[in-house]
Amino acid sequence: MTHSPLAQRQTAFMDQVLDEAAALPDGWGENHADGIKVYRGNYRSALMDALASTFERTAKYVGGGPFARVAAHHAITQPPSSWTIDDAGAGFDQSCAHVFGENPEVAELAWLEWAMLGLATAPDTASLDGAGFTAATAAFGDDDWSQLRLVFQPRAASRVIGNDLTAIWNALGSDAAEWPNFALQEEAGCLVWREGERPTFIMVSAEEARTFAQMQDGTSYGDACVTLAGDGADEAAINDAAMRAGAMLGRWLNEGLIAALH
């Protein structure tokens, strides 16, 4: 750790920028206070502009005042540390969950926007299409299927959700001034990926979102089927789980979520 005079000055200066209540260093006068005020303003406006730009729909959903409140909370609890201001939005869904605890759809919407931002700049990757998949698995035996692991599009994301994100997204793209209740009767899932250059998402079952997350973490197709079947499953339940897993696999292939087999 560096404790040179310059390092000390920079740490103290950063404290001044981040904290309005910080006392001025010894020997600083009114001119310095005026200058610090400008740097504080620049810091805040850069951060607020970045968050408002990344979470445009979330801002529209909650309104300007509440969005400023959650942005300020986020700036205080998770001040930026990365070289790119785009990273300032990391964990913003958690800030939304904290500030809008009564409205869990806000955190889910913020999560979706954050996932879509990440996908917008993800590496360009070709998707495995149905023909490619068929060719790659043509000679598969039972063991090969069981050991099959999938490589998904970089930064594709999934989440179990309690609100209709498709309806929220569409409502926010319309001229509607008031929002209905978007809560779902039962939990669902959301998959986010990129179609060409355009980030996109669909709602799926919660089970599918969980399975996607497991396989993204390296779970094999066989183990995913076992998890879907549940403990002590009989043959019928195992067959049913295999059918459901096959349907998921088919959807992921058709939507272009799978980049390769592993």
């Binding site: 005079p5 310059l6 950063m14 920028v17 810091y43 850069a46 070289w83």
Partner: peptide, 25 residues
């Protein structure tokens, strides 16, 4: 200028003390 310490990034162009030490850094 400088924009960050080890802990935080201001995303603003912050001023340097114009010292020999800063020049060396």
């Amino acid at each position: 200028c400088w924009t960050r310490t080890s802990a935080h990034n201001s995303h603003d162009l912050l001023p340097l003390p114009l010292t020999q030490e800063a020049l060396g850094v």
